Every structure is written in C-alpha cells, then in structure tokens.
Simulated assay, not measured.
Amino acid sequence: MATNTKRKESMADRVYEALKDDIFEFRLLPGDKFSEGDLGARLNASRTPVREALYRLQREGYVEVLFRSGWRVKPFDFRQVEELYDLRVTLEREAMHKICALPEEPLALRTLTAIWNPDHPSERAVGSTARALDESFHCDLVAAAGNREMTRIHREITDRLRIIRRLDFSREDRVEATYVEHAQILEALRAGHAQDAAERLTRHIRASQAAVREITIERIREAAEAHRRGQEIAQESP
C-alpha cells in the first residue's frame, strides 16, 4: 500500500513539474485550454495523479477549471500583477526601516553582502541559481525585519509573482543590474540609512517590474506566432 501511495505521489509530482514547465516556458500560453485526458495521454499518467497535479497548480494560481470544459492556463492579469508589486514595495520599504531600527545588525545582512558583492564578477551566479538567490534576497530582508506576519504575506506575494519574475534573469543586463543594485541596497542598510535603502529598493523593484512585463509580452507574442506557423504548416502538409 505504501509503495503504491509513493508511486502515485511521484507520478503526480512528475505531471506537476511537466505542466508547470510548459506554462513557464510558454509552450502552453495564457488562456490555452486542455483536458485531463489529453494531459494524461501526453504524459502517460492515469487520472488520479493528473488531477492531483492540476489541483496543486490551481491552488498556486497557474491554472483554472472550466465548468464542463476541462482546464485552462490562467490568463495573465497585468492589473493584478501591478497591485501585487505595489504591495510588495510597501512591505519591503517598511522592512528597510525596521531593519535600521534594530539594536544590532542582523546576521542576514552580512551573509547577503557576501553573496551580492563578491570579490570577482566570475563568482556571480547565473540563470536559475541567480533567480533563486534574488528571491531569497528579498525574502531574507523582510524576514530580518522580525515581523512574522509581514514575512508570511511577503512570501505569498513572492509565490504569486514567481511565474513572471523569473524572466528578469533571462537577460544578461538584468543580472548585472541586480548584482549592482542589491549591493547598493545592502550598503545603505548596513550604514543605517533606511530612507536611502528604501528608495534604492523601490527603484530596483520597479525596474525589474517593467522589464518582466516587457519580456512577458514579447515571449507570449513570439510563442503565439510560432504556434500559428506550426498550425499553418500542419494544414499544408498532405
């Protein structure tokens, strides 16, 4: 029984990761519809793990169920994204002031400084590693402020923005900017300049927000065009 349960969990995880990767890489576009049967056939998975994976993705906000019509990749709501960024900026700015008001410098600041101000550019992370470190940077700063509810809400916002924030690290210039800006934010914090840190943080987040919006629109357009060409070729084939 335990073996069967583990096998189902493993299959559900595999379906989850495959479908999430399709969404993240725009092989499935916002608004695309699909059925549990089609997904199961494509991934060679039975109905139970497919449904478990879909419910998990639904809870995370990536897909939605349609009444008697299967499932759909959740369309991008750019207004909602902007509102989430507004809330994120508010929380992180407040964290800057709370950190500077602490009686002692949090250990997290020294740890983050070692990561974001390396001795040589060759020590900088790239790709998915840089993306994960960036997410940790912002979450660790908020956590260092010492407000558990602020930390919890901020992590929820981070989870909901992850699908587009990852695109900020698909361009080398954005990775370079992230290292420079993170180092400047930390320098201001460690000097006790809360307002300066808050202003630098705000500019950093807003620049990232603008970049990921631009990249997201471009990637959706490119994927839609490639899909259209693929359909035309398929129709022309004998």
Rank of each mutant, 00 (worst) to 15 (best):
M1T: 08
T3Q: 10
N4P: 03
T5D: 11
K6Y: 13
K8E: 09
A12V: 06
V15L: 02
E17P: 01
I23R: 01
F24A: 06
F24W: 04
F24H: 06
G31Y: 10
D32H: 13
D32A: 15
K33R: 15
E36K: 12
D38L: 13
R42L: 08
T48S: 07
V50M: 07
R51Q: 14
E52N: 13
A53M: 03
Y55E: 10
R56Q: 08
L57H: 04
E60A: 03
Y62W: 10
E64G: 10
S69G: 08
G70R: 06
R72W: 07
R72D: 01
K74Q: 09
P75M: 12
F76E: 06
T90C: 11
L91N: 07
E92C: 04
R93Y: 05
E94R: 04
M96G: 02
I99S: 01
A101K: 03
P106T: 15
P106D: 13
L107R: 11
T113D: 11
P118F: 00
H120R: 07
P121V: 00
R124V: 02
A125H: 03
G127D: 06
L133D: 04
L133C: 06
D134L: 01
E135P: 00
F137W: 09
H138S: 02
C139N: 14
A144V: 02
A145S: 15
N147Q: 10
M150Q: 08
M150P: 04
I153N: 10
D159E: 15
R165L: 02
L167W: 00
D168F: 06
D168I: 06
F169W: 03
R171T: 08
E172F: 12
D173A: 15
E176A: 13
E176Y: 09
E181I: 03
I185F: 05
E187V: 12
A188S: 05
A191R: 08
G192K: 04
G192Q: 05
H193D: 11
A194F: 14
A198Y: 00
A198R: 00
R200N: 04
I205M: 09
I205D: 05
A207S: 14
A207W: 06
S208D: 07
Q209W: 04
Q209M: 07
A210N: 05
A210W: 05
A210K: 07
V212F: 02
T216S: 14
I217N: 14
E218L: 14
R219D: 11
R219C: 07
I220V: 15
R221V: 10
R221I: 09
A223K: 01
A224P: 00
E225P: 05
R228E: 08
G230Y: 02
E236Q: 13
